[in-house]
Write a protein that binds this DNA or RNA. Sequence first.
RNA 1: GCCUGGGUGGCGGAACUGGUAGACGCGCUGGAUUCAAAAUCCAGUGCCUUCGGGCGUGAGGGUUCGAUUCCCUCCCCAGGUACCA
Length: 990
Amino acid sequence: MEYDFRQIEKNWREFWAENKTFKAEDFSDKPKYYVLDMFPYPSGAGLHVGHPLGYIASDIFSRYKRLQGYNVLHPMGYDSFGLPAEQYAIQTGQHPEKTTKENIARYRGQMDKIGFSFDWDREVRTSSPEYYKWTQWIFKQLFDCWYNKEADKAIRISELVSIFEAEGNTGVNAEHDFEGTFSSEEWKAMSEKEQSTVLMSYRLTYLADSWVNWCPALGTVLANDEVVNGVSERGGHPVEQKLMRQWSMRIKAYAERLLTGLDTIDWTDSIKDQQRNWIGKSQGASVIFPLWRGVEGEDNNELAPIEVFTTRPDTIYGVSFMVLAPEHPLVDQITTEEYKESVAEYKRQASLKSERDRQSDVKNISGQNTGAFAVHPFTGEKVQIWIGDYVLASYGTGAVMAVPCGDQRDWDFAKHFGIEIINIFDNVDISEAAYTEKDAVIANSDFLNGLPAKKAIKTAIHEIEKQGFGKGKTQYRLRDAVFSRQRYWGEPFPVYYKDEIPHLVSDADLPITLPEVDKYLPTEDGEPPLARAEKSAWNYHGGDRMEYNTMPGWAGSSWYFLRYMDPNNEGQFVAREKVDYWNNVDLYIGGSEHATGHLLYARFWTKFLYDLDYIPFEEPFQKMINQGMILGNSAFMTEVKLEFNIWMEDIDGSGESHEETGAEQMVYLSEGVSGVKQEDVEEDLKEILMNAICQRNDIEVVADWSIEITNWTKRLVHVYINTLKNQEELDLDQVQEWRDEFKDALFVEEEEDVFKVRREVEKMSKSKYNVQTPDDLCDDFGADTLRMYEMFLGPLEQSKPWDTKGINGVHNFLRKMWRLFHNENNEVSLDMGEPSKDALKTLHKTIKKVGDDLDRFSFNTGVSNFMICVNELTDQKCNNKHVLEQLTILVSPYAPHIAEELWVRLGNQAGTISYAKFPEFNEEHLVESSHEYPISFNGKMRFKLEFPLDMSKDQIEKEVLANENSMKWLEGKDPKKVIVVPGKIVNVVI
RNA sequence: GCCUGGGUGGCGGAACUGGUAGACGCGCUGGAUUCAAAAUCCAGUGCCUUCGGGCGUGAGGGUUCGAUUCCCUCCCCAGGUACCA
């Protein structure tokens, strides 16, 4: 074999591993470059061809940067805590640590085959105690800090305590959820427990009763980003709201910085927008509506007024009612006797609705009058107070001032319940819908009359503040993130409880390792699995009990990029000198599915660690590229579940009959006959059925029979793509081999031995039986081919279906390149002389294009350029050593194994190509003295003419018009105009 | 509904700042080589055509000497998001 990729790739894999070729040096005179892949979760299914797409791209880029003289940090590790391993543990009783280790080994083996230039000495695993010791430590820092809005950063809690001691909490501008004020004396008078409770409402991670997404099927709570369309992201189980005592992260404190920080980083607009929407900043005013003093005999003077948040204070004169969330605390107190019953009923109905129902029920308008009234702060008029579930308790103050003329939901609500709609817009018709644009002129609104909306907003806020009805306010949609999970396979909290007060475990006792338990299930009392652990099973046990929750999946992945800089440091999570050198990630490649989870949490923790001055940067990932999904090509067949009655007379000539009622049979239809309906089932299908029954009952076929089909359920089912004979035909033997249930099924072919399937492109997933692993391709074509082919498929960011049809083309390219270096006997044969002009032109054209393409992450066009280059050099019969050596370096990021091999065959030292110099582009070789001008008439290219580049415009014009070809196109007319763009085109306008 | 991408041959895709639309690869057709096959090599391959040419980048309009590229209107596909006041 001329190009023996198996041997070559094996040799170089071993060489790289033995020589630690890709070891990254901490500290260097070279400039640094940090290329990071998103942390993989090592699932049991192993890698499919979609996973390495991003890894290949990042590896190519890392190798490119090394060639450019950068000191490159390119590490890999595993996000190895998580639900699937634990679910598997529950089913099999195996310790999740064991399956996790096995899965990691599988991943590693698959990655090694592809020839990535990772520095494996830096590997980290979130589930290893050496790693999660520091996850626990960071948790402790968060616990020990509060957010000072004045300084706009996190500050140690001890400073807060000093302030409380000196002056109470009145002068503190913090992100908190403590209600009320206290003085220095009052603080000092508090018990330890009381102080602890107060501080809890200030800490950046805190324990509180909060409404959480409880997923009964998974037995745990989920963060907002883990709930998709009202069901769990993993498994699709229903999720309900539940009030639970949980650790939370006060990410709200960082809302503004998470928002503004987006402007400093180079991410796609799509991800930035998703984060902006998730944070959901809105500016407006909080306005206080006092309660109407009520009818005679009632006294609600004592009740708090209703505070609302509005982004449109300019429309305050359009308020014709108020709406409170059904859960609003004031509802019961203000509801009048007359409405008590219907309000209670409405609340009951609302509480029964799940989050999902509420979402899917948007069109349905519901609400209930409370009978109470508020007082309009400006007009002094009475305003009805309603409750309605379109107002969310968890956003803003859980109450709105309804302005039906300016808000569609308010408009719908008012129409539905016949409430007055006041028009406060000048010259705007609101009879059909609300007017929600902010470009109207305000009317009917006292001091706001005549002002355009935008100006009116400012004026209104000013007036509201002046009169003391409220103040300007910024509201965020972002909610604090729940940080507790009722699961086993996660980081234990460094927390113990004494008299139900949480205490932190001291640094010296970290890590708190996962204790052994008898089962990975909750206890009978519903406590998380860790509650099963014996006291002695804990490596540290303090107080009355340890914290039984574990941390969520995103804990470990929020800071892992820092640990790669200093993976074995036992004294710190990362040494300051090292993080000062490596700084933040220059290029992060991964999927966009983490937009509102990992990518937001990692930014949050980074900003926090920056505030405490542990790291020198605020944004973890400077540039990010989101690779598109590789889609699978699923195969389907039509399944029919048949229920039927059958009669057979005179079996085996014995006169006995056979009868079955309600018999069942699975039938699979070839694509060509899949359209068949129950009513048009013909005799031949029935005959097939009858034959099957005979076979099953071991009786001979009889002539006298009848079948009545009673039920017919048809659906499409996936078939495993490895059971296909070719693109569209199924191998029936293999299908029956694959699954036992198919052994008894009937397969209806459309021709003799032809069973066709339907093919459809969809997400690649184990459950769709359309997964292609990289392993087979590595074996058949080699890693270099796989690497180049995955890049060649198309732009990195785009999703594309996986199809191995073209892989031969890429493989042939590598062989063709190999042949440039070798003669017919596969011996290296090189021309040591000066390269030809043509060869240099080809080479430098390629250097320019490949370099430019890499700089703009256009990996697919890079591959094309190599093909063009090799085609041209083959045509030129070029085997010039200088040219081929430069080409070898150029190709090495894409196809490192073959490049190493050729590099050595050119006479270079093994292992040095990775640190060679990226070829320098020299424009001189591309300089032309003439250009072949496309000559177009009215913009259509008709023919070409070659002119010297230094020819003047006038001269070119003359030459073109004089050319005999032009005569034909001019049709005897005079050209109106001739445009000559030197070095580009000529356009003649007729 | 809103936000973000995207629509180019039989297929994956190229054309970076407006300047030869379809590079490169697959597939397909014909040929060479071969006992044969694989591999390799050569030629062709957007559509239509009366062989002059005409039409072509989701549709329609516009700007321009010239538009896949810029502007307007609309359609379709993918992803995200959804009572956020």
